Each structure stands twice: as structure tokens, then as C-alpha cells.
Simulated assay, not measured.
Amino acid sequence: MSDHLAGAYDLVIFDLDGVVLLIDRPIPGAVEAVERLRADGTPIAYATNNASRRAAEVAALLDGVGVSAAPAEVLTSAGAAAALIAERLPAGSPVLVVGAEALRAEVRDAGLTPVESAGDAPVAVVQGYGPEVGWTILAEAALAVRAGATWYATNTDRTLPSPRGPLPGNGSLIAVLRTALDRDPDVVVGKPQPALFTTAAARNGAGRPLAIGDRLDTDIQGAVGAGMDSLLVLTGVSGPADLLAAPAERRPTFVAADLSGLFRPADRARVPFSGTEVGGWRVTRSGGTAVLDGSGDPIDALRLLCDSTWSGVPLSALSGVSGAATALLRSWNL
């Protein structure tokens, strides 16, 4: 058994956007992390809420940017949604698809009939992210749901990380229909639902998997719901302030700046750090306040402060004494 964090697990499940990729380019260190896991003999899976590509397309994209992947290692919310609908409806049932061609193909391959109009009497609407989704198909979906079709969402991620910053995700497109219909989807398939994680574990016969994500509200909450340990990396959507304010169901087992944290001792990433000093940082608590002093690795300061905020200290009651502490809190918008 290796002494680094990843060595304690028999499967590593990566989210993609914000963890391995930013749209179509690898996040620094992702290629090296995946190849080191493979060299160590650790099985890998990729579980993504993005429904705009099929598993084979995702694997090809990853391979194309240097991140090794096989289609069998990839699970997408598009595939999971189509499989679930096929379990619930007779073969050939008409399903109105709001999303990319990948989602239509998954619906077709599941034995269902993808349609584009409420006039085709769809018995279900499935909605996933697609960059070409516009008013026309959203209007048809609204009419179909009002007529009684069951509304499935592949995921509800409000944003997608990109090199230029967060962009509208499927949750933003769902908000259009939510506003028009004054209701939520009937079924949400992807993370934070645990199905992608539990399916990945079952495929690999894993008894101790580790899930890695950049979003507390999907990746980490999904891992918690699946009963799995998780690692939050700060290369995507959720930042230090989000982690400090995270409710219990969104708290990871570990936190790291990036995927290099997989190969450091687990005790250097475990969160929270239950103590008053670590890595050159000190926290002094008095009543409902917490004061950070010293200097060092920002991740150690974050782990230390999580012990305070997760036990009741509000973010507004955090302050710094040293110049390094003050600057760090300011960089976290605290």
C-alpha cells in the first residue's frame, strides 16, 4: 500500500469539466496524474454530468489532449438518463430530446424514438446540455410537459467551467423551463444523484472508490450520497469560501489545489484539520470568531479554518493577523 492519498483506494472516479478538462484542453497536471495512477495499477473511471458527448466521444477527446481513456471507463449523464427512461417506458416510446446529438443518439440506442415536437405526443422529455439549444425546442418541451410528458433532466449544473470563466450550463437552460412551467423536473439523473458513482464502482468491482470533483453541489454531494470518500480540487467551480460555508452533505473528505494532491500524504489533504496549528498557520478562536495567523500552504490554512466554520463560526467572523493571513482571506473574498 502506497503512503500517498490515492494509494488507499481501488478506483479513482474523475469528474471531467473543471477537474481534468476546461472545455477541450487539459487542466495542468491532469495528464501526469492519470498516467501515474495507471502506472500504479489503480483503475480509473470518468463520470460526467455533461450530456453533449457520448462515452466514445469523451474518450476520444481525452485521448486527443493526452489524457488516456477508454470508452468503457466513461459514464455520462446522457447515457444514464436514456437507460433510466428505457427501463420505465415501452420500447419505441416517443421522447422529446432537448440537447445535443449525443443525447438523441443515446435515446435512440436505448430503443426509444427521439422526437422534436410536442405534436409527436412524447411521453417523456429529456433535457441535457447542448450549445445549440434555443427557444424553439424549449417551447416544444414546455408544451409537451404541460400535456403530461414526464420531464427528465440529465443534470442541473448551473455553470460549465471554461478558460474564460463559468459559462451557462444545463441548470441555466432548465431554469428557462422551470420559469415557464413554474415547476421542477420530475427526475434528475446525474450528480448529485449517486447513480454515476455507484455504477462506476460496480463496473470495476471496487470496494473503496475515491470520487474527485470541482463542485460541492454535484460532485461532492453525489459522493457523500453514495457513501464514498471524495477529493475537492480547486481548479473549477467551487472555491475556498464555498468550502468554508459547505453544509454537511457537501463536505469532502479531502481538499487539494489540483490533482497533484492525489500523490501527497492523505493527512496533508484531510479536511477539516482538527487542531489549532498546521503547516505554519495558527487559528485562535474566541467566542464566535476565528483569527488566522502565520504563513504557509494555503490548503493548510483552508483545512484549519474549515474546523472553525464547520463548527459554527460564520465567514464574517474570520480575520487575519499576519500579512500573509490577511492577504489570503482577501484572495478568497473574505
Rank of each mutant, 00 (worst) to 15 (best):
W310S: 15
T42D: 04
R264Y: 02
N155S: 11
P185L: 10
S77A: 13
S308Q: 08
R146E: 15
R208S: 09
V233A: 10
V145H: 01
L243W: 04
A324G: 05
L329K: 05
A245I: 01
P192R: 06
G134N: 14
I23Q: 11
T48F: 00
V283C: 02
D120Q: 04
A142G: 14
P71S: 09
A226S: 14
V31D: 09
V20Y: 00
S238H: 11
A118M: 12
P209T: 13
A290S: 07
V115C: 07
G213K: 12
A195D: 10
V291H: 00
D214M: 14
A245Q: 04
A257S: 15
D24G: 08
P240L: 08
R268F: 05
A47E: 05
P90V: 07
T159S: 13
A325R: 05
L62W: 12
L22M: 14
V74W: 08
G213C: 13
T218P: 00
L244Y: 09
G66S: 03
T199R: 12
A121W: 02
K191G: 09
L11V: 09
G130V: 15
D293A: 14
I13M: 13
A301H: 09
T179A: 14
A180N: 02
A82F: 03
D10I: 11
W310M: 15
V58L: 00
D63M: 02
V107Q: 09
V115E: 14
V291N: 00
R251K: 03
A241C: 07
R282S: 15
D307L: 00
V233R: 03
D15Q: 07
E249Y: 06
T76G: 03
G128W: 01
L232N: 14
S68R: 15
R303M: 10
G92Q: 06
S77P: 04
P43S: 12
